[in-house]
Design a protein around this nucleic acid. Structure first.
Length: 180
DNA sequence: AAACCCACCAACCGCGATACA
DNA sequence: GTGTATCGCGGTTGGTGGGTT
């Protein structure tokens, strides 16, 4: 048995939100607060599914959101936390006030991922990329590509070695993890 | 000026987790 | 203990704008 859809697609708007829809959503949440996303669209007079309302609020309309470019500090922090937690975007977002998981995920995929790859670092493991048994960086030296197209170097102070913070006994006795 | 390419990002989709009857 | 509804997360898609040919 398949999962039932979260909403009746035939009677809901899809795609980009209009100013009027944004205004209705903001007004409703200011008056009633967040929560019960399932009921919200009907109560707010929106032809959207609750999921869509929640996403729009969290990723775009929340008043505490910090818009604009990521700072170098945020950039470094994302890389460091990602090396510990992997693609746990909501957890990473929790360490970056004013940033959303979606925003960080997009930033990772469009900026940081490419930057790490250009350094010869695997974005998934945060370890030097190896091709077969040959290290990526060594290959570059061997084929002379480095001389013709010098690559940016990984910052010295950015520790990309995997470093799981919980002590060994915690790692074996508990699955809960925290980053501070 | 037009066509094409690419990067960015808002939004959607599917699924696991959780709450509740 | 089980089934259902809802929430929240992560992966992916698609529209748009800017740059290049």
């Amino acid at each position: 048995m398949g999962r039932s859809p979260c909403c009746e697609k035939a009677h809901t708007n899809r795609g980009a939100w209009t100013k009027d829809e944004d205004a209705r959503l903001i007004a409703y949440i200011r008056a009633h607060g967040e929560g019960c996303w399932r009921m919200l669209p009907k109560a707010a007079g929106l032809r959207r599914c609750g999921k869509s309302c929640r996403l729009r609020w969290i990723n775009y309309l929340r008043p505490d959101l910090k818009r604009g470019n990521f700072t170098q500090e945020e950039d470094d922090l994302i890389v460091k936390i990602h090396s510990l937690l992997g693609n746990r975007w909501s957890l990473i977002a929790g360490k970056l006030p004013g940033r959303t998981d979606n925003e960080i995920k997009n930033y990772w995929n469009t900026h940081i991922r490419k930057k790490l790859l250009s350094w010869g670092v695997d974005p998934a493991t945060h370890r030097p990329i190896k091709i077969g048994s040959i290290c990526f960086e060594r290959r570059r030296e061997e084929d002379g590509a480095e001389a013709q197209h010098p690559q940016p170097k990984c910052p010295v102070d950015l520790n990309l070695e995997l470093c799981i913070s919980p002590p060994l006994q915690q790692a074996t006795s508990s699955s809960s993890r925290s980053v501070n």
